[in-house]
Simulated assay, not measured.
Amino acid sequence: MKTRTVIEGNTRVEVPLSEDSSGISSPSTVFYNPEMELNRDITVAATLAYALTISDEKGIPLSEIKYIDALSASGIRGLRVANETGINTTLNDWSNEAYEFILKNIEMNDLAERVIATRKNANVALHENKYHIVDLDPFGTPAPFLNAASSSTISFLEVTATDTAPLCGAHLKSGIRKYSSVPLNNEYHSEMGIRVLIGKIVREFASNDKAIYPVLSHATRHYLRIYAEVRRGAKRADRMMENMGFIENCQHCGFREPLYGLAVHSQYECPSCKSPMSIAGPLWLGSLHSRVFCNGVLEQIDALQLGKKDAAKKIITLCREELDIPMFYDQHVMCKQIGISAPGMDSLINKLLEKGFNASRTHFSGTSFKTNAPVNDIKQIMRSLD
């Protein structure tokens, strides 16, 4: 197999040589996607930020904090975590070919004393041992690995999902099968996907009497990424389940309303325009981000050697400032509904704030915003800016 050497951060790895200009190696061999460098940059910063928290609060040296990259492929994600944070790392992949790459890349980075390589089914690897930090970065859905992760995770969970079509409602039946939730494919489908994914994780962990507390969640290009603190206790898990529910949405005028609980009563007629309502869920209605954690991640992004530093800072800063409510509005969709040109986003946000509402941009897109203003008030304010 032809290979090439890739450098990310201050870590060098050997990966299969791609057969086209994308740089993406085939998933049938040892998958490597250069487009995920930003994801890995944020992973290194977020993992270090939380590892330092564990070290400070529990007095555990960084070298004794255990992290597993359960689906490692070439090993680049876990090797970067080991090399750039100093924590104890396990790299696992079921493929013999991937395992050989992992061993070679451990040696290339002189990390034999701090990195363990295993060749097992990811669920087996997770059920066999406990780790302070568990990272799931599969090719596709993380759903088959969540129960094992709930058994293995001591303190912190990191999950990537690249199957955005099922999560966001584009492949409805697949989403229902994998995530036991009915999503809506509308203008806020990216946030819908994040909340469906977190909802699935919350329920899996609750079955093992563990609660998860999302501290950073972002939708970037073709993937979703979740970071969550994990705590033991049935009562904590019960409290987190109280953040589960549904979103009731009017596809005609944009009205939406969260409905908390797993057994809810839907109003069949939109209270704003009298059109039929649609409902999505169950999904997570609680917080997506922690301001304190985002600040810690930004500190590490500044300190680390990262190839996508500016892009990473932009995403985390937007997440930190994002209004803590579901779901966002899309400015262009709303303007099309009422037949006006889109005003400047800053003008819209400032006008909403001036009127006494809460409002913010979001990381989801340049045309998305969040506000607690009723939908008719938003439209009235937009008309005043036209």
Rank of each mutant, 00 (worst) to 15 (best):
G245F: 00
Y223T: 01
I226N: 04
Y260I: 03
H222F: 04
E248L: 12
G199S: 09
M240Y: 00
M240F: 00
E248S: 14
Y260A: 08
H222R: 02
Y268F: 14
R221S: 15
H265M: 13
E204H: 05
S217C: 15
S272N: 14
V230Q: 07
C270Y: 02
Y260S: 10
I212A: 05
Y268H: 15
Q251Y: 08
V264M: 11
G233R: 08
S266V: 15
E204D: 14
Y227Q: 02
F205K: 00
T220I: 15
C273P: 01
L259W: 02
M240H: 03
K210H: 02
R236I: 03
I201K: 05
R231Q: 11
I247D: 00
L224I: 12
I201R: 05
E269S: 13
Q251I: 11
M241S: 12
C273N: 01
Y268P: 10
Y227E: 01
V202C: 13
M241K: 13
C270D: 06
E229A: 13
G254T: 03
E248C: 07
A206I: 14
L262Y: 08
R256E: 10
I226F: 01
E269M: 12
P214Q: 08
I201V: 06
S266C: 09
G245I: 00
E242Q: 11
A263F: 05
M241H: 02
P258E: 12
R203Q: 14
A206P: 13
G254E: 00
C270I: 06
E204L: 06
S217K: 08
A234Y: 09
P214V: 10
I247L: 13
I226Y: 01
L197G: 11
F246W: 04
Q267W: 04
I198R: 04
M240T: 07
I212L: 07
R221T: 11
R236G: 05
K210D: 07
P214F: 04
A234D: 12
N249S: 14
F246P: 02
I247T: 07
I226Q: 05
K200E: 09
A234V: 13
V202W: 07
L262Q: 10
P214T: 09
G233C: 10
A206M: 14
K210L: 13
S266T: 13
R203T: 12
I247P: 00
L262D: 09
Y260M: 09
E257G: 00
Y227H: 08
R225P: 04
K200V: 08
L216V: 08
K235W: 09
Q267R: 15
S266A: 13
I226V: 13
C250L: 00
G245Q: 07
I198W: 03
K200Q: 04
Y223M: 04
Q251P: 05
P214A: 10
K200L: 08
F246K: 04
F246T: 02
D238L: 07
N243D: 12
I201G: 02
E269Y: 09
A228C: 11
C250A: 00
R231G: 02
I247S: 04
G245K: 09
G261K: 05
L259G: 04
H265I: 12
A211C: 01
T220W: 11
A234G: 10
M241Y: 01
C273H: 00
F246H: 09
Y223V: 03
V215S: 03
L262I: 10
